[in-house]
Design a protein around this nucleic acid. Structure first.
Lengths: 164, 164
DNA sequence: CTCCCTGCAAATCCTTTGCATACAG
DNA sequence: CTGTATGCAAAGGATTTGCAGGGAG
């Protein structure tokens, strides 16, 4: 019996190779870290997270590889309402929902939501003359369960202007 | 004949007062600069633009007031695909369409597009248990007329990763 | 072996802050 | 007049770059 499919979602070596990238330990660890749902760390948080696990990685390596992985389409990034760049493992098409009070981010998958899928939105928008629209990303804003329960300072408060 | 309604869109003094803000020369000029459609400057560009007109304004004043005006709801801001913060005069609800090649930004008004209006999207999204969704902003991406005409380097090229 | 990657430190870029002076109400 | 706002310069924070050593193919 051939030893096939060790773990679909964890075959990072294959994903890297498939994207034309070399397999390296830092890349493997970054992909592994992001390979969970609703995980959207800033580069700094990702760096600390990996360090906390005992991995000896450099912050600039994290920044560099996040960019490389992004260009390869293996991860996504977006700016949260406070302007911080956040990353997530790219798997299925989705949007984001951010809590205006504490900054928590939730993935909004569009697999089952043809109406809200990027392509659908991109097709439906009346593009100005001559433009070719290729994508659409929605940033939903609101209040998470903890923060909308009325309790002030339910979670860590935001320092800056909630914005956007 | 009473001298009424000098200029609806240019009554910046009234808009400021209405928002509980003092009227000052810098604020007046910033609002005036943004009071055109499809104008989405970065703070730096806005600063240079005002300077070019001979106005003696400080960069930090621009930053400060953009934030004040944003909090007052008189202007909006958003991050373009390169991560630059861009501002526009807040008038009607709308989204943005950005050219991935040259960075040009076009306003997509939703007055006549109930389906794509922020409220409609916010209502339609299946919010995770306990969340209260209050808004939605769409960032459409594509290629503007000049850049989609096939000619390479149609406009100023991007230095950074087009991203997102 | 050769080229690319890593990790540290220094450098950049955007944005905010401190402060004395000037203006709005 | 009193309290803000302005504008300059310096500080701060996030991200990038330079470079010598190390690893992947």
């Amino acid at each position: 019996m051939p030893k096939v499919q060790a773990s679909v979602r964890r075959d990072h070596r294959g994903r890297l190779r498939g994207a034309g990238l070399r397999h390296t330990v830092p890349r493997e660890r970054i992909l592994a870290f992001l390979d969970r749902k609703n995980v959207h760390p800033t580069p700094e948080e990702l760096y600390r997270g990996l360090r906390k696990k005992g991995y000896d990685i450099g912050l600039s390596t994290v920044y560099l590889n996040l960019q490389v992985l992004k260009q390869a389409g293996l991860v996504w990034d977006f700016k949260d309402p406070l302007g911080m760049t956040r990353y997530d493992g790219y798997t299925r098409p989705h949007h984001h929902l951010v809590c205006l009070a504490c900054g928590r981010v939730e993935d909004i998958l569009t697999d089952k939501l043809p109406e809200l899928a990027s392509e659908a939105l991109a097709e439906r928008v009346p593009a100005p003359e001559g433009w070719r629209v290729v994508g659409a990303r929605v940033l939903f804003t609101g209040y998470c369960p903890r923060c909308s329960s009325g309790k002030k300072g339910a979670s860590k408060p935001r320092e800056k202007t909630p914005a956007r």
